[in-house]
Amino acid sequence: MCRDCGCTLGPAVARAPLASVKPPAGRVETIEVITAILDENDRVAAHNREHFDGHGVLALNLMSSPGAGKTSLLEATIRALAGRLRVAVVEGDLATENDADRIRACGVPAVQVQTGNACHLDATMVHDALHELPLAGLDVLFIENVGNLVCPASFDLGQHRNVTLLSVPEGDDKPAKYPVMFRAADLTLLTKTDLLPYLTEFSPARARAALQQVGYGGETIELTSRGGEGFAAWLAWLDREVAAQRARTAQGRTARPNVQPEGALAHASARPAR
């Protein structure tokens, strides 16, 4: 259970000052700030990105609800890439080492980050994991985030791209229910399409329309981790991103995922809705 979720059920509190607010005794000064609340996380994320770029590694953040198929996709991908691309994985999980064990069984390095009570990875957790990985010999670092369609979208980890999975059993309306998560994606994978014949209520076209409605403008690939056409399209996307990262590294440039609002600081002085 999330430490952040434990206490939050109940009616919204009033926006008035707390009852315990003391009247000021000394001189009161107002300081205008306007900085991102997650400034410190963003700073560590930028540092992580320097580590990745320094070694020419492409870093991908995989996000989805629990059970959408992130680890299965990674297992199949690692097997398909064997001998072609050098891969490592950072696994985020609340408590177990299971996913890292599954990845190691495929023959690649994996570091398990046990987030304990936190329902998302943050940049510091990833930084701690990085120093246990042989970055110098890698082409791609996959970061499997904690299964959760809410929190992970708000924390930059230093990755270059976000990949969000939506599995057929979850229903095609999920983008409308979790707009922040799907807006953050650079690539959306509709997974477990082998189940489409049994879950006829899932319409890939409706899922794509819901993605468009939340402002998602990226590519959408339908696949099953059991192989086939869509899986090949995913591998082709990976190859393109690895090539793009190599080109950026050669030119001393980097790339940021869709996670961070670009214009937020610029519009901070706009009027609030209430």
């Binding site: 000021p24 000394g26 107002t30 700030v33 306007i34 609340i37 600081l265």
Partner: peptide, 26 residues
């Protein structure tokens, strides 16, 4: 049209802090 730029709504900002210092209130 769905090809739009979001100009507000993504903020998560600290805007202002009011502090009390030891100096005596005027």
């Amino acid at each position: 049209e769905w090809q739009v730029d979001v100009i507000s709504g993504e903020e998560m900002l600290l805007k202002r802090v009011e502090i009390e210092t030891d100096a005596l209130a005027a």
